[in-house]
């Protein structure tokens, strides 16, 4: 097991390196010239060249990549020979000249809001999705099932910006049930934090819960027809034990897979909701950076998001082995 984990972590690092290289090459192929974007209308080719050098873009792509990798571990200095060198300390994910900040610092500042948003919604949607999914499965074909599945379908098909805007309009503007969203750390002002987060949590959870309801329901229906469930009943186990201990555990694996990957995806930023509720998270950072063509930040966010997905993949695989003893990780 531990050998497996070590091997997986190593291959994960390899994968990330490859991925960052691909990202690097892709961005270097973009028609937009970052150096050109550094100055406005009054640009001269000389200024652009100088800026290109400052950004470290005047060397071949692979050399740039090498600089990037070195920076990741040892930090790097941009425009070292110029009068105003820029220091970027390890781990250096790049430097945003637009914002005059290290990309790593930018992302680090934005991460808490995203993490809070993702985890809060995650817990909500798992609880709601799984329990309603089980409920629908047990009432299969009856009105309760149809209602739950109908609601799920609606939740599934509404776009998040629509629900978000409607919620803001009615709950915040029209009836003033909540104050205007303004993010603070929960350690600073728990009440304001909750008031800000509650709507995005619920909206995000609704979107995801719809999918988990369907998934759970279908899993349960499949598993409940299995032979070992009949065996559990034949033992005289109470139905709730049959459901919770035997059926749910057996149907859990795809739910775990989906949950792990969805959470990881969200940690890379919930672009739309963060923007609507002006949460200072990775998603809104990404949107702004795209608008500003702030390439170092975009590359940094892409890599961080990919890391989350890859790590989640490993965790899901490990959980698989914990849930299903037949899975052998070797």
């Amino acid at each position: 097991m531990s050998a497996y984990v070590v091997r997986r972590v190593l291959s994960m690092i390899l994968l990330l390196a490859l991925l960052s290289l691909v990202v690097f090459i892709l961005f270097s192929l973009l028609p937009a010239d970052p150096a050109r974007l550094t100055c406005g209308k009054s640009c001269t080719p000389e200024i652009i060249e100088a800026n290109r050098h400052r950004l470290g873009l005047d060397i071949p792509v692979f050399a740039q990549y090498w600089e990037f990798l070195k920076g990741l571990f040892f930090g790097r200095t941009y425009a070292a020979n110029s009068p105003d060198p820029v220091q970027c300390s390890a781990p250096c994910l790049g430097y945003s000249f637009k914002r005059g900040e290290e990309v790593f610092v930018l992302i680090k500042e934005r991460l808490p809001a995203t993490i809070w948003l993702a985890f809060g919604a995650f817990v909500l949607w798992l609880v709601a999705g799984i329990s309603l999914g089980i409920y629908a499965a047990l009432r299969r074909g009856r009105w309760q099932d149809r209602t739950v599945m109908g609601v799920a379908l609606v939740g599934y098909s509404l776009p998040s910006f629509f629900i978000g805007l409607v919620a803001i309009f009615f709950i915040i503007i029209r009836f003033q049930l909540l104050p205007f969203p303004s993010y603070v750390s929960p350690f600073e002002n728990p009440l304001q934090f909750l008031q800000t987060m509650i709507l995005p949590w619920i909206i995000l959870a609704t979107l995801y819960a719809a999918f988990y309801m369907r998934l759970t329901r279908n899993q349960m229906l499949e598993v409940l027809g299995d032979d070992y469930i009949r065996t559990a009943r034949a033992k005289g186990l109470p139905e709730r034990v049959v459901i919770r201990k035997h059926a749910l555990r057996a149907g859990l694996t795809p739910i775990v897979t989906a949950a792990g990957l969805d959470l990881a995806g969200l940690l890379g930023g919930a672009i739309i909701l963060e923007s609507i509720f002006s949460l200072p998270g990775i998603g809104s950072l990404a949107v702004n950076s795209v608008n500003d063509a702030d390439l170092p930040v975009i590359v940094g966010i892409t890599l961080v998001a990919a890391t989350f997905i890859i790590v989640a993949n490993l965790i899901v695989d490990l959980l698989y082995a914990v849930i299903d003893p037949r899975v052998r990780l070797s």
Binding site: D226, D227, A232
Partner: peptide, 14 residues
């Protein structure tokens, strides 16, 4: 008590 046809699938695999 009851026993079933397929012993492969009648025990919980986990």
């Amino acid at each position: 008590a009851m026993i079933f046809q397929d012993p492969m699938s009648s025990l919980h695999p986990f």
